[in-house]
Each structure stands twice: as structure tokens, then as C-alpha cells.
Design a protein around this nucleic acid. Structure first.
Length: 462
RNA sequence: GUGGUUGUAGCUCAGCUGGUUAGAGCACCAGAUUGUGGAUCUGGGGGUCGGGGGUUCAAAUCCCCUCAUCCACCCCA
């Protein structure tokens, strides 16, 4: 028999990973349930995919940076040991070696790419347009910091197989419904990649489009001056930069700014982008004006480079966490890489962990998110425990959460436990109760006690 | 991946320029209260001072390395 206690290890978690205690789970469940309800109300169907995907599915989808942040899983068995034997002369880390020999799987980085993979694999089974939602953890080997974790939940809703802008408007409604239900005031910014592309065309800077969007995305952090400098460093002329500045400086409401932008960027992709944005706003109006603030913002860019049409981003309007609570957009050809081209999709994502952080900071969680134990049987001796057991079961059968303290400990200790667990009622059972056939029901909040027949417990405390 | 911050009891932290057996609050356990929780009082258990190496008669304290943490950058939910 091995002495497993000899080698005691310091308990710890891998960096960026977290446990969720009972209260946190309750609150997270409340968050997820809220989203689930809204998603389903809009006709989205649930989907789950595995944590692990083939690296061939994941690699190259998130840009160079994304590949670096992929968690790679070592092949199981002795693949690595075999590899080392075969390459005994190679010193690990001395120079790059074919990773593929020892790792062919990775943890999912987001939910969109696995969704695209699923759609392609099941295309004959699905009714298009296919709407699905997915609430699952994703993994990024990033360095953790405030509002950034290595394992975090994304809550995605996507519809694939339709170009209709009704979806764009409905997704805004979903954002609106969820954040309104949760009680968070947010700002929802929308833009179109086509407007940005049009601007790049107008400035004859199409070749550096992706780099341009990455810089533009930093506007709220760096301010115009910072963006201006970075673009200058990238080789943008003063004229090109002032053109961009003018676009960002447009005044008026959403529709007015769209009109001006369209006017400025004639004969480019921006015309279509503006038209689509306007159309989306029309649909939104028809579906019902949102409660939350919706702003057309030409500086919104989004890093992920698969977006091609309208893009979204949500940020809290209150609290200290300024980073994004969610985002999304339309991608014209996400399934193309898996061999199914010409299928357009649009989707949004909620960052549950950040939403959690914001709600906690602003104290927005309802007081009781989990229904805990309602009554604790506190027994003086084993005979009392046996006597109580059937009543315990009866309460449970009636759907009430009930517990019995597992030892005939001192009452003091048992009541302390009830108090610590926030259990509102205690049924005290000792010799007196057994002989009289009535239990002493104690209300832990008021401290009052009454003698009741055990059959009436349910009615008294339900 | 880059830069910085902080690691002392289960938790939050104190420990001055190196100097006896490393402290406090909260939490925990026991008792005051042999069938009554929250309050109070009394007592108690708990620490490889993140780990390794070095300087020194002497290191929680100074130096180096390492690990972890948090924050920022990059990037993103």
C-alpha cells in the first residue's frame, strides 16, 4: 500500500484558471439562464461542441497572435517519449522542431470556428437559415489580468445561411433584451467593415487594411493623437489621415452621420456598408426601439479578421471595467475554409465572465440566486435521527430541500451549522418530541419556536 | 511574448535601518451555556516567512536565480 500522504503537495491552480464556489455558480447560472431564455425566445437552438478540436481546425483562423495563444494538447500515450527517442540528437528548445509530430489537438479558442466546422460537417441535416446558441468555456494561453482569464465562457448566438439584415437587427434586440434583463446599462456600437474598407479604398490604402483596422480599434484607448501617430508610422499620409479624422468627426444622429459618410465615400464599398447600416436600423425600428443606447460608430473595427459586414461591440456604461462585454458581426465566408463556400453568417458573443465582474461591482445580482436548504433536522440522539428520517424523505418528495445533521451533536453545534449555511428553519427532535409525536420547529430568523406535528412541516415552511 | 508590482497563519495584513521563542484582526476549535444559532468573555490550535542559492557571528529583512500573483503593453470576451 503506497503512502500517498507522504508526498503532500501545495494545492494550487494553473495560472488564469479559477474555481467557482456555490454562490458564484448560482450567480453564473442566473446569467446563463437569462441569456438562454432570450436566445430561445428568438428561435436559437442549443449546440455544444467538444473542448478539444483538431489543430487543423483551429490554426490560422485567428491570425498570428491567435495561433500563439492556442493551447496545444500533447498526443496521448507515449507519443512524446517515442518522438524524443527518434530524435535523440535534437535538443528540445534548441531550435524549432515539427510540433505536429507530438500534438495534433488543441483547446478551443472561440465558439465560432467550431460552429463553422459543425455546420459544414452537418450541412445536409440542418435547416437553413440555421440559428444556434452555444454557452461553453473557451481557452486562451494569454497572460491573465483584470477581466482577462485563460478559461472563460463565451455565450454565442449565430445564424448561418441567410444574408438578411433582419438578423443584424434581431441580434441587437438580443443584446438589448439580455442587458436590460440583467440591469446593466450598456452602449452598443455598430459599424460596417465595408465602411472601413471603403475608407481604405478612398485613401488608396487597401493593401494595409487589416493593420489599419487594428490601429483604428485602439481609438478609445489611445485617442485620436495616438492613432494618428501610429498610422503615420505605418506610412499613411497627412491627407489620408485627415480624411479618416473627418469621418470620425461627423456630427448628428446615427442616420445623419450615415448620410454624410456615404456622401464622402462615394464609389467605394462604404456605400453598401452605409446602406446596410441604415437598413439594419430600419429593421430595428420596426422590431421595436431598443432600451439601450445604440450608436453607429465609424471607429469600431474589431480585431478578428473574418468579419466582412456589420460589426458589433458592447461596453458597460457604468463601472470601472471598460473592456468589451461582447461583440460580433457578419462573416461572409467562414465555412469556406472547411470547403463550403458562399454561406453567410452573422453572430454575437457575450463575455459572461466580464459581465459577471461588472454585475458584481455594481451589485446587480438578485440576493438569492440558488434555493438553498430550507430546513435542517437537529436530532439529540440516534433514535431521534431514525424517527425523523421518514419525515425528511417526505419533505424531499414534496420538492423541498431538507437536510438532517448527520451526527447527534450538541444542539449548539447543529444550530451553528444551520446559521452558517443560512438555513431558515430547524426541526429540533429529542426524546420529548418523539414521545409527544410533535417536533419543535424553530424559525432561525425570528428565533421563535412552535410545536408541530411532523406531517404539517411542509405546510409551515414551504 | 515585453515591462513593472507583490509573495509572512485558512483570509486581510503588520514586522522600522539584519539581532532573542515571527505578530494583529477576522475565521476555526473548546469552554462559560449537560436540549437552543447570531452577541459577549476566556482559553486553544495553527507559519518550510513562495522555493533554491549566496553574503553574514546572525536573514522574513540584504544580493542573485526561480516560481507564483496582480497590473500595464501586445491582443482580446
Amino acid at each position: 500500500m503506497s503512502d500517498y500522504r507522504a508526498a503532500s503537495v501545495k494545492p494550487a491552480l494553473p495560472s488564469g484558471m479559477r474555481d467557482f464556489g456555490p454562490q458564484e455558480v448560482g450567480r453564473r447560472r442566473y446569467l446563463f439562464d437569462t441569456m438562454r431564455q432570450v436566445f430561445e425566445r428568438y428561435g436559437y437552438q442549443p449546440l455544444e461542441t467538444p473542448v478539444m478540436e483538431l489543430l487543423s481546425t483551429l490554426e490560422g483562423k485567428y491570425g498570428e497572435e491567435g495561433d500563439r495563444l492556442l493551447y496545444r494538447v500533447l498526443n496521448s500515450g507515449d507519443a512524446f517519449a517515442r518522438w524524443k527517442e527518434q530524435h535523440a540528437e535534437v535538443r528540445l528548445g534548441a531550435f524549432s522542431f515539427p510540433l505536429r509530430d507530438i500534438t495534433e489537438k488543441g483547446l478551443r479558442y472561440d465558439l465560432t470556428v467550431p460552429f463553422a466546422r459543425y455546420v459544414v460537417m452537418n450541412r445536409h441535416r440542418l435547416a437553413f437559415p440555421f440559428r444556434r446558441y452555444q454557452i461553453q468555456p473557451v481557452f486562451r494561453a494569454d497572460r491573465p489580468q483584470k477581466g482577462r482569464y485563460r478559461e472563460f465562457y463565451q455565450c454565442d448566438a449565430d445564424v448561418i445561411g441567410s444574408r438578411s439584415l433582419v438578423h443584424e437587427a434581431e441580434l441587437i434586440k438580443i443584446y438589448d433584451d439580455v442587458f436590460t434583463a440583467l440591469g446593466i446599462r450598456v452602449t452598443l456600437r455598430i459599424n460596417s467593415r465595408k465602411v472601413l474598407l471603403g475608407l481604405a479604398q478612398h485613401c488608396r490604402a487597401e493593401s494595409r487594411f487589416t493593420a489599419f483596422t487594428v490601429v483604428l480599434d485602439k481609438l478609445d484607448r489611445l485617442g485620436w493623437q495616438g492613432v494618428d501617430e501610429e498610422l503615420a508610422a505605418m506610412g499613411w499620409t497627412a491627407e489620408q489621415r485627415s480624411e479618416l479624422h473627418a469621418l470620425l468627426q461627423l456630427q448628428g444622429n446615427n442616420l445623419q452621420r450615415l448620410e454624410q459618410a456615404e456622401h464622402r465615400l462615394r464609389q467605394t464599398a462604404a456605400e453598401e456598408g452605409c446602406r446596410e447600416l441604415r437598413q439594419t436600423l430600419h429593421w430595428l425600428h420596426a422590431l421595436g426601439e431598443p432600451v439601450q443606447q445604440v450608436v453607429v460608430d465609424f471607429s469600431l473595427a474589431r480585431g478578428l479578421n473574418y468579419y466582412t459586414g456589420i460589426i458589433y461591440e458592447v461596453a458597460s456604461a457604468q463601472g470601472t471595467l471598460k473592456s468589451s462585454l461582447g461583440g460580433g458581426g457578419r462573416y461572409d465566408d467562414l465555412t469556406g475554409i472547411f470547403g463550403l463556400s458562399g454561406v453567410s453568417g452573422v453572430g454575437i458573443s457575450f463575455g459572461a465572465d466580464r459581465i459577471y465582474d461588472v454585475m458584481e461591482e455594481l451589485n446587480l445580482f438578485p440576493p438569492a440566486t440558488v434555493a438553498g436548504t430550507r430546513i435542517l433536522f437537529c436530532c439529540m440522539d440516534e433514535a431521534a435521527m431514525l424517527w425523523s428520517a421518514p419525515y425528511l424523505t417526505a419533505l424531499r418528495q414534496n420538492g423541498l430541500a431538507a437536510e438532517m445533521y448527520p451526527e447527534p451533536e450538541k444542539l449548539q453545534k447543529q444550530l451553528k451549522y444551520a446559521h452558517a449555511r443560512n438555513i431558515p428553519f430547524a426541526a429540533l427532535v429529542g426524546e420529548q418530541e418523539r414521545t409527544s409525536g410533535r417536533v419543535t420547529l424553530k424559525d432561525l430568523n425570528s428565533g421563535q419556536q412552535q410545536s408541530v406535528p411532523p406531517e404539517e412541516l411542509y405546510e409551515k415552511i414551504k
